[in-house]
Amino acid sequence: MPRELFTSPAHWTWLIVVYFFVGGIAGGSFFIAAMLDLVGNRADRSLSRLGYLVALPGIAIGGPLLILDLGRKERFWHMLVQSETFRPMFKWWSPISFGTWIVSAFGAFAFVAFLAALVRSGDRPQRGPLVPFHKIVYGLGPLSKLFLILGALTGLALAGYTGMLLSVTNRPVWANMNLFGINLLGLLFLASAVSAAAATLYLLGRRRGAGVEHESLHALTRFDDWVLGLELLVLIAAIVSLASFFGSVSAAWLAGWGALLIIGVLVLGILVPLVLYARPRMLGGNSGVLAAILVLVGSFLLRTVVVMSSETIESLERVAHGG
């Protein structure tokens, strides 16, 4: 009997699933926007602007979900400041602890970039409260570059640490997604988050009013293609890593959550979008939209399956043992 089945569930459920989804999109959006600003064209700026406009609302929704999930919400600050000594609370070896700092740091990057993005692209405001923010993101030469690089890295950390958080436990599925000495959950969540962010920006950038160049959108879908390809490989590896673990529980798991993972995430969330992106004329010009929506659905389902299947494993165990 796998040792993880002797442990208790933390009851991390829908609030956490939604946070993983929204937080991942926020982090991924900042990353894509910063990449566009760092190595893309100046014409991409209307797209990168969208990325910053998504990042802050994303973390502004996601962060409070984490607080809502606490048993004692008024004590959320105990993760940042030690409640007895008022010294900073930080443990590099505790994913929730360093995650709290990633969320906070990302909030700061996203806040600055959001205000900078409120300035219409091309405009150079001479006055006004937003000028200093615009300057930090675009007007300080190498320092602005550093801001974007650090923000992009924090965005990727936000997208990936959630997988680490689940893997550094003793719970089934989360702690067992190991192959060749690597736990795949952080990698899987990171790829899925960046791909979902690309899909979000595609949907927003496609609207006529957004003023995003066709070429920028094309680059975005091509990027999503690559990231979806990476996610596909990691997901297959993850399924292989789990298959060897479950034993008697696997039949019940595969029948329910496993089926959702393969049909909902692997086929509908990755393979179909890959085909649709590759053949944009397939559905009369709307295949990109459908692909992006499916990517988002797949990304949400991935988090749902990973979180909820572990939380409900006790009932599966009973099914498997006929009890």
Partner: peptide, 24 residues
Amino acid sequence: NLAPSGIGSGIGAVLVGLLGLLNF
């Protein structure tokens, strides 16, 4: 799982970063 998961996430960040760099 701290190191195995950190390495996995790090590989992910490097790969996605490279894909972004090359693509854009």
